[in-house]
Design a protein around this nucleic acid. Structure first.
Length: 568
RNA sequence: UGUCCCGUGGUGUAAUUGGCAACACGUCUGACUCUGGAUCAGAAGAGUUCAGGUUCGACCCCUGACGGGACAACCA
């Protein structure tokens, strides 16, 4: 996929910047980092990336690009029980696809384990860290609460020698999981809970996806994260709001260690209406089969959006228009849908497909002819294609109404409508089966009205799409709707988010009709089905025998809107 | 002994750092149209959570309320 990041030099000059750019501008002015800008994206490989991560990637990579700095991809792989190589691979793929260019700089926290161990020993030697034998429950009891100070562990005042010895024996595997931890010696009475002697190392006898069985003690996030940024020379450690309270702890570690000290800046994570955004919840959806894997097109994962037909550019643009700030927000999915519509409108090949076919026989037409159709009215360079027209065609069932409502201007008994790129037809007869269902329309065409000839002055209210029966190809079309019925599925007090899943979020149409032109395209390619929406060929279920389409997003539909309004 | 963040149209952001609130999405009109799409033109919609204070002047600075969020994993 092409990487089309727009250059933002204009933006840099303009006065409207988000607060992070303003901080960096100031840093550049004061030469705080000697003109250096270095950012990173630091995911834990314990799940697939979602659209919230995309916001972070765009922000971090965008900053590096705009200030001629560097951008690292770094895996925060400090907990072997939750992490997996599959996730590492998917994350690399997704970041690249999105356009986050880390060049050859893929790093791993696990590469820094030795250095971190030495720094831990340094803190022990300074009397700033100690080995604690307390079990988790005891530790929790001693930590106090938000309103009362904690109490010191009985092991808090062990000698440096004993701590060093114990810590090394922890490393050497002499103890079982949970038997001992290394703690920073800060302040059990701090009003900031994170400063009440946080755990730095815990014992986990598990195989790590990269270091294997080399280690059985693993650094906690709070101990490790600031060190990783320090080691890589990151200038601006950009993270989400919930880590604001952690900052004093990172500052403490870096200061005690007397090592390079990046600046942490927090911003508000992305929340999207009608979606859940936590990896834990997404994992639940996958494991409990509410969806068909991490890349199910209904998932807010990057791989889900990719499969659904979103482009990197649309997601980048979305990240751009939602901005970056410090207040919690709930972004309307309409903004995301706007981004993909805007792009696909300019780029997508137009094609005609009928999802719910109704046969039309044009009784006064005999023979066959070839008509010319525009591939994209927004881009004449995409040219034309040929489509066959003959006596029998399919139209959309809902483009005909036997008893039309007010404002309906498609086909009605005795009425006329234009067939796109073809003729104006008139409905002469409605044919029904025993059950009274409409099974066929007999129509007549007006030979003077062929598209492009200009031989007719006849005006009709509507134009509908159609597919030629004789050479139509069958395909499967998957229509997606929002995965949740609630605007904020995670915010519902009474209900579990899984009870708010939209049961109609996937509708499979197994026998849609499509013009044969599409045959030559490959999985992943994108189209507009005229009057219906944007669709792409599914990369997972398409076979040589069967084309499967995913609906990326519908077209804006003002008619559907007025219909819905009148219903209410 | 609680601490720390944050409050601007329906939504997301902006306001040249103190000069009577702008942009995008959405909504609603109308024009145009062989996609009820796109495009074009226009409209409605906030007086900036509230109350004081400083100032000639406050979204912006100060104080205090109120509201929202984060923090008490050997998760990240």
């Amino acid at each position: 996929m092409e990487n089309n990041w727009s250059n933002k030099s204009d933006l840099l000059k303009s006065k409207s910047k988000n607060f992070i750019y303003e901080i960096i501008d100031e840093d550049m002015k004061t030469k705080k980092w000697n003109g250096r800008v270095y950012t990173r994206f630091p995911p834990e490989p314990n799940g697939y990336l979602h659209i919230g991560h995309a916001k972070s990637i765009c922000l971090n990579y965008g900053i590096a690009r705009d200030y001629n700095g560097k951008f690292n991809l770094r895996f925060d792989d400090t907990n072997p029980t939750k992490e997996d190589q599959e996730y590492v691979n998917s994350i690399i793929e997704d970041v690249k696809w999105l356009g986050g260019d880390f060049e050859d700089r893929v790093f791993y926290a696990s590469d820094y384990f030795e250095q971190m161990f030495q720094w831990a020993e340094k803190l022990i030697k300074k009397g700033k860290a100690y080995v604690d034998d307390s079990d988790p429950e005891t530790m929790r009891g001693l930590r106090g609460t938000i309103n009362e100070a904690g109490k010191e562990s009985p092991h808090r005042n062990r000698s440096v020698e004993e701590n060093l010895d114990l810590f090394n024996r922890m490393k050497n595997g002499e103890f079982k999981n949970g038997e001992k931890v290394l703690r920073a010696k800060i302040d059990m009475a701090s009003p900031n809970m994170l400063l009440r002697d946080p755990v730095m190392y815990r014992i986990i006898h598990s195989e790590h996806h990269r270091t294997g069985n080399k280690w059985c003690i693993y650094p906690t996030y709070d101990w490790a994260h600031g060190l990783e940024d320090s080691i890589e020379g990151i200038t601006h450690s950009i993270c989400t709001l919930e880590f604001e309270v952690h900052r004093p702890l990172y500052d403490w570690f870096l200061k005690e260690l007397e090592i390079y000290h990046p600046q942490q800046i927090e911003f508000a994570r992305l929340n999207l209406t009608y979606t859940v955004m936590s990896k834990r919840k997404l994992l639940e959806l996958v494991e409990q089969k509410f969806v068909d894997g991490w890349d199910d097109p209904r998932m807010p994962t990057i791989s889900g959006y990719r499969r659904r037909g979103y482009t990197p550019e649309a997601i980048q643009n979305f990240a751009e228009i939602i901005g970056v700030a410090k207040r919690d927000a709930m972004t309307d999915v309409a903004l995301l849908e706007f981004s993909i519509r805007e792009e696909l409108n300019k780029k997508a090949q137009r094609v005609m497909a009928v999802l719910d076919p109704l046969k039309v026989v044009i009784t006064n037409y005999n023979g066959e002819e070839v008509l010319e159709a525009v591939n994209n009215p927004e881009d004449s360079s995409m040219g034309h294609r040929e489509i066959n027209f003959s006596r029998e065609i399919y139209i959309e069932k809902n483009d005909f109404m036997e008893n039309p409502v007010k404002g309906f201007h498609r086909l009605v008994p005795g009425g006329e409508v234009r067939l796109r790129y073809a003729y104006i037809i008139k409905c002469d007869e409605v044919i029904k089966n025993d059950k009274g269902e409409i099974v066929q329309l007999n129509c007549s065409y007006d030979s003077d009205t062929r598209s492009g000839t200009g031989t007719s002055t006849k005006k009709v209210k509507g134009t509908i799409h159609w597919v030629n029966v004789k050479d139509a190809i069958n395909c499967e079309v998957r229509l997606y709707d929002r995965l949740f019925t609630a605007e904020d599925p995670s915010g519902e007090k009474e209900k579990d988010f899984k009870d708010l899943i939209n049961k109609d979020s996937l509708k499979i149409i197994s026998d849609a009709k499509l013009e044969p032109f599409v045959k030559k395209f490959k999985p992943g390619e994108k189209f507009q089905f005229e009057r219906l929406g944007y669709f792409c060929i599914d990369t997972k279920y398409t076979t040589n025998e069967k084309l499967v389409f995913n609906r990326t997003v519908t077209l804006k539909d003002t008619w559907a809107k007025t219909v819905n309004k009148n219903r209410i």
